[in-house]
Write a protein that binds this DNA or RNA. Structure first.
Lengths: 214, 214
DNA sequence: GTGTGTTTCAAACTGTTGTTTCAATCAATT
DNA sequence: AATTGATTGAAACAACAGTTTGAAACACAC
């Protein structure tokens, strides 16, 4: 009998559930489907998790943790330029966001929670977004020291994050608009590089304009 | 007996269905709930639409048409600058995208179809995206005549569209990050203006860089 | 081998869902 | 008023969903 964590019935159920919840959402996913995929009996959900809802929460918690471990920001030294920080931020963000057919369910499930928060997990996911938001806003303050309008900083943050999130939320669109070769060529580094370049260019113009008005 | 279109049972059902489908998606929406909201009997769905699926399709078709009529691009003369075209495009796009509590269900439903296409409506929605994509890419070609790399143009298009779509897909996040006053102040014109400014700044830098290498 | 706790399983249960059925009512026409 | 087609509504149906039940099987310790 294998003792590895991922071989137990409980783990197999979480894995199967995560996969299907990520694809279909909570309501459209049935316990029977999860258990069939996991090679388990439907009573196991009650036995290990109590009910479907708690299984869902467990899957989201698991996805969230995985995502945070997998896509870490690099350590920045005191002399890292804010531009480099922004590049790193964007690259890391895209790593967390970009989910293709070959990717696991973790990012996909968290993204689903972000777009359609469930009562049970809203706090968990939202509370992890705030620090990222503040971090990015802080980087923007370094790049744009003369821009003191908080609202503008927020909108700028959203403009950058929006570009990153696009590749998840609009994935079916992107897939349809591009030919297969071009779509398959959209790797994380390429996307991150483009978004960073686009955004830094905009910020550079903004900084120049802010400087000029002084 | 009123003869106005929106007073008939059939119309009331479509309206109620659209609202709830937009909020909850197809699977999580029940026929009983729709009919209760519409003040109709559950048999009416079969009578007027045949089944739930066809009601859904009707709602999406209706949403799509409404959206296209509501948010039209202005007529451009031959001497409209590509920068102004881009501003107009973004403003119109945001009008189609931005759905707040006070808005109707039409945009919301189409956005849902975009992010999670259903077999029944994929063609309809996707086929309306292509012309918009080509239009925006065309505008970008005017702004960046020296950039001939199609892939880069596509990514740039996505960067602009991603900013716009953000305000729909990440709405729960935005609501959570901002205080109520700031969130309520996010009107279409303000958002469009910021996105246009940010994007035109980036493009200006890009055009300058492209020109400089000549 | 016995006892105890854990895990698994098939069947059952209860409630819900989309759909259908059929008769009553309504509306329009002659 | 009678006829015909349209519309409505309550009840029924079949399938399915989440959950529970209780016994069998398993695992481990003594």
């Amino acid at each position: 009998m294998a003792t590895k964590e991922f071989d137990t019935t409980r783990e197999r159920i979480i894995d199967a559930a995560g996969e299907i919840f990520a694809q279909r959402g909570f309501d459209s996913t049935t316990v029977r489907e999860i258990c069939q995929s996991a090679g388990a009996n439907v009573a196991a959900v009650n036995y290990y998790f109590g009910d479907k809802q708690r299984l869902y929460v467990e899957a989201v918690v698991r996805a969230h943790r995985w995502r945070m471990e997998r896509a870490k920001l690099p350590e920045w030294s005191a002399d890292t330029s804010p531009q480099q920080k922004l590049r790193d931020f964007i690259t890391t963000f895209i790593r967390r966001v970009r989910t293709g057919p070959a990717d696991t369910w973790h990012s996909r499930l968290v993204m689903r929670e972000i777009g359609n928060p469930s009562a049970a997990c809203a706090e968990l996911v939202q509370s992890s977004i705030r620090p990222q938001f503040d971090l990015l806003t802080g980087i923007l303050r370094e790049i744009l020291p003369n821009v003191t309008n908080e609202k503008e900083l927020h909108l700028t943050t959203f403009s950058i994050v929006g570009q990153c999130l696009f590749y998840h939320f609009a994935d079916p669109v992107v897939r349809n608009l591009l030919d297969a070769k071009e779509y398959d060529g959209l790797d994380v580094e390429k996307l991150a590089a483009h978004i960073a370049t686009f955004s830094l260019a905009a910020l550079k113009q903004r900084a120049t304009r802010a400087g000029a008005t002084r």
